[in-house]
C-alpha cells in the first residue's frame, strides 16, 4: 500500500513538473513585453528598464522559471500585468464561482447517472434499457453550450424562472447565487451524466455475470438487492475513474459555459487574460487547473485502494 502510494505520488509530482515546463515554454514564445503593457506606450526607456529589472524579466530563462515555480509552491502566482494585483487574489475571487459550479454539476451528473445506469442494467434488453441508453446517446452527442442556449431560451426567456446570465455574487444571498448557477450546472452535467450512465451500465452488466452474483441469487436474495448491494459496489472502479476524469473536465468545461452565461469564473478570467496578454494570469490559472487534475487523479488512485482491498495488499 505504502509503495503503491509512493509510486503514484512520484508520478503525480513528475507530471506537474513536466506540465509547468510546457506552460512556461509555451507562453514564453508569445511576443509582447509585460513591462510595456503595464506602463503604457508613453513610458520612458529608463522606467521600462527599471520595471523589467524589478519584475525579474531581465533574468536568464532558467532563473525566471525557477522563480515562478518557487513562487507557485508558496501560492504566490505573481502580480497581474493589467490589474496590478496579486494573481492569487484574482483566482480566489473567481474560483468561488467556478468551483461550486463544477461541484454542483458533478453531483448532478452522479445523481442522474448511477441510478439511470443501474436501471438500464436491471432491465437489460428491455424497453427501459433501450430508452435510457437512447437518451444517453443523445446526451453524449449534444454540445453542452447548445444545450445551455436551449435551457436559457426555455427557462429564462420563455418561463422567466431563472436569470439568463450573470452572477449576483454570494453576498446577494445563497439562493440568488445558486439560482444563477443552476442552468449552467445542468448544461455542464448533461453530457457527463450520459457518459457516466453508459459506463455504470456496462460495468454493472459485467459484474452481474460474476459467480458471487449467481451465489447471492441462488441463496434467495432478490435481484434488486444483489444489484444495488453487491454488484454496484464492485462496479465502482470504472465509475470512479470516469468521475475523477469528469471533475477536471468540468472545471475546464466551465470555460465555454461561463461565456454562455456571462459568469465571472476562472474560464472568463483566462479568456480575458489571454485577450489582454496578461500571461502571468494565464500561467497561474492553467497550472492551478493542471494541479487539480493531477491531485484528482491521485485521489482516484487512492480510492481504488479503498474500494478494492486487493490493491491495498500490494
Amino acid at each position: 500500500m505504502i509503495a503503491y502510494l509512493a509510486q503514484r505520488l512520484l508520478v503525480a509530482a513528475a507530471t506537474l513538473l513536466a506540465a509547468s515546463l510546457v506552460v512556461f515554454a509555451m507562453l514564453e514564445v508569445i511576443p509582447g513585453d509585460p513591462a510595456r503593457l503595464m506602463l503604457g506606450m508613453n513610458a520612458t526607456p529608463d522606467a521600462l528598464e527599471a520595471l523589467r529589472n524589478e519584475m525579474g524579466l531581465n533574468d536568464p530563462l532558467p532563473v525566471r522559471y525557477l522563480d515562478w515555480v518557487a513562487g507557485m509552491a508558496a501560492l504566490d502566482f505573481g502580480r497581474s500585468y493589467t490589474y496590478s494585483v496579486p494573481v492569487i487574489d484574482l483566482i480566489v475571487e473567481r474560483i468561488v464561482v467556478s468551483l461550486p459550479l463544477a461541484l454542483i454539476s458533478l453531483a448532478l451528473s452522479v445523481v442522474i447517472a448511477i441510478p439511470a445506469g443501474a436501471f438500464a442494467a436491471q432491465r437489460r434488453g428491455r424497453a427501459g434499457d433501450a430508452l435510457s441508453m437512447g437518451a444517453a446517446q443523445l446526451g453524449v452527442a449534444i454540445p453542452n453550450f447548445w444545450f445551455a442556449l436551449l435551457l436559457i431560451y426555455l427557462f429564462a426567456v420563455w418561463l422567466r424562472l431563472v436569470p439568463a446570465g450573470g452572477f449576483p455574487g454570494w453576498s446577494a444571498g445563497i439562493w440568488p447565487a445558486l439560482k444563477a448557477l443552476l442552468l449552467p450546472a445542468v448544461a455542464l452535467a448533461l453530457p457527463q451524466a450520459a457518459i457516466l450512465a453508459r459506463v455504470t451500465r456496462s460495468a454493472l452488466i459485467e459484474t452481474l455475470g460474476e459467480d458471487y452474483v449467481r451465489t447471492a441469487r441462488a441463496k434467495g436474495l432478490p435481484f434488486g438487492t444483489v444489484l444495488w448491494r453487491h454488484a454496484l459496489r464492485n462496479a465502482l472502479i470504472p465509475v470512479l475513474t470516469i468521475v475523477g476524469l469528469q471533475f477536471s473536465f468540468l472545471l475546464a468545461g466551465t470555460i465555454i459555459i461561463e461565456n454562455v452565461f456571462y459568469l465571472p469564473g476562472l474560464g472568463r478570467l483566462v479568456f480575458q487574460a489571454i485577450t489582454q496578454r496578461d500571461l502571468i494570469v494565464v500561467e497561474g490559472v492553467v497550472m492551478l487547473l493542471v494541479a487539480t487534475v493531477v491531485a484528482v487523479n491521485f485521489l482516484v488512485d487512492i480510492s481504488y485502494a479503498v474500494v478494492d482491498p486487493r490493491l491495498r495488499a500490494r
Partner: peptide
C-alpha cells in the same frame, strides 16, 4: 506513457483555448 500522462493532465479544452490564443 509518462508523456501521455502529462498531456492528459491538461484539460483538453483549456489547452485548446490556450494554443489558439497563443
Amino acid at each position: 506513457m509518462r508523456f501521455n500522462d502529462v498531456v492528459f493532465a491538461f484539460p483538453a479544452l483549456l489547452s485548446a483555448v490556450m494554443i489558439t490564443a497563443v
